[in-house]
Structures are given as structure tokens and as C-alpha cells.
Computed example of a mutant assay.
Amino acid sequence: MSDDNSDTIDTREHDPNFELTVSGDIGTANTMRQRTGETRLKTWFMLDGHRLVVAGLLAMLIFAVFIFAGTFFYQYFLIDATSGDTVETVFSTMISAIITGVTLVLTITQIVISQENGPLGDQRERMSATMDFREYAEEITGSPTPADPSAFLRALILQSKEYAEALRDSVSDSDNEELRGEVDEFTNSLIGNADAATDKLEGRSFGSYTVVSAALDYNYGWKIFQVERLADDYVDDLSTETLSILDQMKTSLSMFGPAREHIKTLYFEWELISLSQNILYISVPALIVAGFTTTYVDGNALTGGILGVPTLIWWTSAAFAITSLPFLLLMAYIARIATIAKRTLAIGPFILRDSQR
């Protein structure tokens, strides 16, 4: 939710890059990052960045640290590698860690896949619940429910935007200036947020984080709360038509909640399966490198140096970074899944962070 407590109102609309500043915290910024106040770097590392790229950058960091430390700090490494079994011990441990990690990830994948299995009756109930939801969504939007997840979310968001425009028009002739001001503030924020989210969703296919990211940007729960508050605070000033619009808007926003949660759940399963596949692909070269280093490499096998750094340090640093990749990839995926899960713990108008409380 927004942490913006400014006392100014800016009525500029429909700019997806514009961070709305409003009084009373009625409106919010258009993106989750702006509302939480986190840096672009942290958001990219935890959420937006491609998971393979994030894991690769972490591996490069490990490589650089090992080169630096082996060259300038632990200068007895070559002596230990020549006289003892330092290299063999390190990479023998890495082999055990890789095998254990792969086994763990595959177990998690089996649990995820097992949730999709079940008797015919359970599958029929799932299908019935899905079709009931789609029919209800069709009644709200007035058009067939899209089969594509991004188009489905987009349709629900655009419908709430239409209700916001109708709400603003319905109170334009009201004698209550405070009501008109709050409705304008609320609808401007909703419309700007809807435009930003739908632009991000347009043409996106399921499986990419962009679909979930756009859904997280649209903070429907806060909007439901504002609809309820407006209906209660100005019940004596609102016409029957306006109350009906508020009720329809609340229903539309409430439909977005379970739709987002369902697509988020499917995305989690998709990500965990992708994690298992990538772990399997990376674990084979990681095991080869660890096994080769354990068997053939010691302080006497690699002599000389490159750019003033001993060849053995180059090799062990690169080998350790490569053998760490399965764990780093696991960390990259779990970081994203855990962050999304933490930010979507509550469904509906509940605020779990210290913003707009």
C-alpha cells in the first residue's frame, strides 16, 4: 500500500509512470514498488530480474570474492593446496551438497505435481467451481470470459475502471463539494492504476513474471475499502444510482481478488516446475566440475599464473562458482516466490504493512 502522506492533490490521469500524490491516502501510486518505497535494485533482484541472470550474477560475485581473497588475503592457499587435501575436501563437500539439493528440489516438485492428481469426483468439483467463477465474471463484464490469464485479469480491471468513470459522472452534479473531491481523487487514482496494470498485461503470456507483477500492482483491496468507506460516509448524499454503481464496483473488485490468487497459485506451480528443470540441467555440469576438480586438481597439477594470479586460484574460484549454481538458482527462485507470497498473504481489504494504517 501507499506510504505517501503528502497534502497535495495532483489530478493528472492515465500516466502509468506517474506516482500519484494525494491527500488523505485515498489514492495510491500505480506500482507496488512505488507504494512500498523499495529501490529498483532490490525489486529487480527479488522480483523482476530473470532468475537465471540473478543466479549467474551471484555466481560471478562468488568468483570475484574468491579471486580477491585468494590473491590478497589468504596467501597460504597454494601451500595448503600443495601439501594437504584442501581442494579435495572442499569439492567433495560440494558434490554431497549438489546431490542433496537436487533430491530436495525434486521432492518439492513431486509434492506440487501430486496436488494436480486426484479422483474423478475431485476433478469434477474443480471444473465446476472454475466454470461457475467464469460465468459470474461474464455477468459482471458483459462479455465472454477470456481464456488467457492476462486477458482475464485485464478484463476485470477494465470493468472496474468503467465503474470508476461512471461513479465520477454520477456525483458530478452533487452539492457536496467534499464528496465530489474525494470521488475525483479516488477515481483518478483507480483509473491511473488500471491503465498502468492493463498496459503491462496487454499481450503477455502466462509463465512470465510480468503477468503476476501487473496483478500485484493493482491494489484492489485498498480500493474495496475506499468504496465501502465512501458508501458509508456519504450515504445521505448519494443517489440510488450512485449506490448501485458503488455496489457493482465492489463486486468487480472482489472478483479480481480470487482471480489473482488463482493465477498466482498456478504461477507458483509453474515456477517450481521450472526450477526443478533448471536445477537438473545445471546440476550435471556442476557435478562434472566438482568431480573433475576432486579427482585431478591439486596444488601440483596447476602451475603458473594469469594476470598475476596463480592458475590454481583461477580454477578453484571458477569451479566453486559453477558448483554453487544449483544452490544459487534455488535461492533466486525462492526469493521471488517468498516475496510474492508475503505481499499477498491476505485476500481482500486487509493491510498487513505499516502503510495507510
Rank of each mutant, 00 (worst) to 15 (best):
V183I: 14
F186V: 00
R126I: 06
S114D: 15
E162D: 13
T100E: 09
T141C: 15
T130K: 02
F186I: 00
D173T: 13
A151P: 05
R180T: 07
L153Q: 07
D122F: 03
D173N: 13
S174T: 04
P146Y: 02
V171W: 00
L158V: 04
A166S: 03
A166F: 02
G121C: 07
T130D: 13
P119S: 02
P146F: 03
S128M: 11
D169W: 02
D175H: 04
T145N: 07
D175E: 11
E162I: 06
L106M: 14
R168W: 05
T187K: 00
L104V: 06
E139I: 07
A97K: 01
Q110A: 14
T109V: 10
M131A: 07
T103G: 13
S160F: 08
A129D: 15
F152V: 04
S170L: 01
E139T: 12
Q110W: 07
P149V: 04
T107A: 15
A164G: 14
E125C: 07
R134F: 02
P119C: 02
R168L: 10
A129K: 10
F152N: 06
A164M: 12
F133K: 04
T103K: 04
V112H: 01
Q115D: 09
E185D: 14
F133G: 07
N176I: 03
M127H: 06
E177C: 10
D173F: 13
E165L: 11
A129Q: 11
V112L: 03
I111G: 15
I140V: 15
V171A: 12
K161Q: 12
I99K: 03
D169S: 10
S172P: 08
K161H: 06
P144H: 09
V105D: 00
Y136I: 05
A151M: 08
L158Y: 03
E185T: 09
L158N: 09
A151G: 07
G118M: 02
E165P: 07
A164V: 06
I98G: 00
I108H: 12
A166P: 06
E135K: 03
S128Y: 08
I111S: 15
S172G: 08
R126D: 13
M127S: 11
T145V: 05
A155D: 08
T109L: 15
Q123R: 02
S150D: 01
L179P: 00
L153R: 04
L104D: 11
I108K: 06
L156M: 07
A147Y: 05
R124L: 14
L156G: 01
T107S: 15
I113P: 15
Q123L: 08
Y136V: 04
R154G: 07
D184S: 09
E135Y: 10
Q159L: 10
E139C: 13
L106Q: 10
L153I: 05
G181L: 01
T130M: 05
A137C: 14
G142M: 12
I111P: 14
E185G: 11
R124V: 12
Y163F: 14
